[in-house]
Design a protein around this nucleic acid. Structure first.
Lengths: 145, 145
DNA sequence: TAAAATTAAATCGTATACGACTAAAAAGGA
DNA sequence: TCCTTTTTAGTCGTATACGATTTAATTTTA
């Protein structure tokens, strides 16, 4: 191993992760355009399709995003009438995020997207499972140190 | 499998990839701040530490970035005097990117970063190898379709 | 060889992403 | 209770990221 090998791009684990993230998201784009969503808006909608109601803090904990990113994004989703933003009555510091009818209906149109993306990525079942496990292990390790 | 399971966040392969990319880059930040680099600037510098000279097109092919992202980024690296940007004499459409002395010296200061990040990610050797292989397979599959 | 097509970089507009800070509300303690 | 601390969103500034378009240089072709 040469002295500078550790600085070569091909030896950086983060590099292909960064590339994959960008390139898979790029693959999502044409499908998401049809729903008038960006990728980040899409994962917010997925969270809401599962949970119906949340607040900025909760959402941020799952998506690992802070209010500085979420606030403007949620305002855009409200403009599109996919969600409603309202202060909690119990604790006015909390902003409650709720799906609208229109936001709920969008879920139907999204149903085909995962299959299309899966076809692009095209991994074997067991490769996919190992990949998941490793990625979540990295996330766990990182948050710990 | 329920009808909507495919739309759950935990079943999205892209989601943990996206999170890992963000979170690993976040780990880089304090180290890169010392070198006055962002993550994207860092991978540009890594490319140049390996190749000494390139142009925007070549660089973009490796980093999967276009001139719309690279042009302002390279101007910033030039301001910091890590690189020089000059039109090629052979073909004036090409902008040649060259390391400066100062940019070359930065490599020494970066030498410890990969080890520190590796400690954070903290995977077994064989896990890492499989992860690399799978990520590059995804990239290959994606570019094909 | 002159016009058309192609190529490379730059520019523009929009949307994250995030560190640092601010404002408002709630919780806690003397 | 009043004051301090904590919590939650929001704001601001900087830096990507990228689709679409523009500009300039080169190559192709009629």
């Amino acid at each position: 191993m040469e002295q500078y090998d550790s600085l070569k791009l091909k030896n950086q684990l983060c590099f292909p992760i960064y590339l994959c993230s960008k390139e898979i998201i790029r693959k999502y784009t044409p499908y998401l355009n049809k729903l008038d969503l960006t990728y980040t808006q899409y994962i917010v909608m997925m969270y809401l399709w599962e949970n119906k109601e949340t607040n900025v803090k909760e959402l941020g904990k799952t998506l690992l995003l802070d209010s500085n990113t979420l606030t403007p994004l949620l305002k855009k989703l409200e403009q599109k009438e996919y969600i409603k933003r309202n202060k909690s009555e119990k604790d006015e510091r909390n902003l409650m995020i709720k799906l609208t009818e229109k936001g709920q209906e969008l879920k139907e149109q999204a149903l085909d997207i995962p299959k299309q993306i899966g076809k692009c990525i095209n991994l074997e079942k067991d490769e996919t499972i190992i990949l998941y496990k490793t990625l979540y292990k990295i996330l766990k390790n990182i948050e710990e140190r």
